[in-house]
Amino acid sequence: MGVIEANNLTKYYGRVRGVENLSFSVNEGEIFGFLGPNGAGKTTAIRLMLDFIRPQRGDIRVFGLDAHRNSSAIHRYIGYVSSEPFLYPFMKGLALISWLKTFRRQNCDLPLGRLCEILQFNPNHFIKNYSSGNRKKLALIQAMMHRPRLLILDEPTNGLDPIIKQGFYAILRSLKRSGTTIFFSSHDLTEVQKVCDRVAIIKDGRIVAVEEVASLIHKNNLLVEVTFNQMPDEMMLAGLKVVEKNGQTVKLQVGRGEINAVLTRLNQYQITDITISESTLEDIFLTWYQ
């Protein structure tokens, strides 16, 4: 049984679709990416998971427990960061952290000093004086400090600079090693590719693909970038999937089974350069949305 099991979740806000027949499962100890553009239903799925809202149909179970009936018990083992963390502006960062610690009886064993150091965060200021990046860091610290069994992250790196992001990824890897399951909702595809084990792509409130990141990339097309000495006629490229043309350079999308045939065709021309690469998660994602 997965740590999160969503079955046919449907949620409409009045007439506006949130999610529809959404089903997915997150395994213990994995980092599960949840990909989709704005409005696809990512945040709705998270709200349902956390029992902020209730589905019209379907159900969602976390740790095998109903997310609605057992929300308080489930939340004991959850850390959550919303895409825009709203915190009490007149509290100091440290006061907020100390207060939130009192909600959980277990020790908050991730050393606060270490988290603050990695994320370069000073908790001794009033929250109202923090930049959005610092507020995000505070939200991340409060979500991770008790080493949750399940960490739910909604666009967790919005507002963080690239150096802090690297530190944050290191913390995530450390949490994963210690058995934490991480639900990682994002539209930053490079980040998801870098961090996640499996990924679900959500489109119009429905899951359109769930796959391991490596296998998703491997199963998809290769990208062949060829620079010709002299550009061949259009006719010669007929039947090939041209992604981009730039001067003497052509980018082709090639199915894995077709690579030999394509290379044979290209061999008829004078080539000055050729690179063959895997499609990125971004390429794959875009094919779902084009």
């Binding site: 029992d51 308080s72 939340h75 709203f86 939130l100 959980r104 409060q142």
Partner: peptide, 16 residues
């Protein structure tokens, strides 16, 4: 203010 999300994500019930 949106701060209710912080409360609701803690191990507490709405009744509490």
């Amino acid at each position: 203010q949106g701060t209710i999300a912080l409360l609701l994500s803690q191990p507490v019930t709405r009744t509490q």
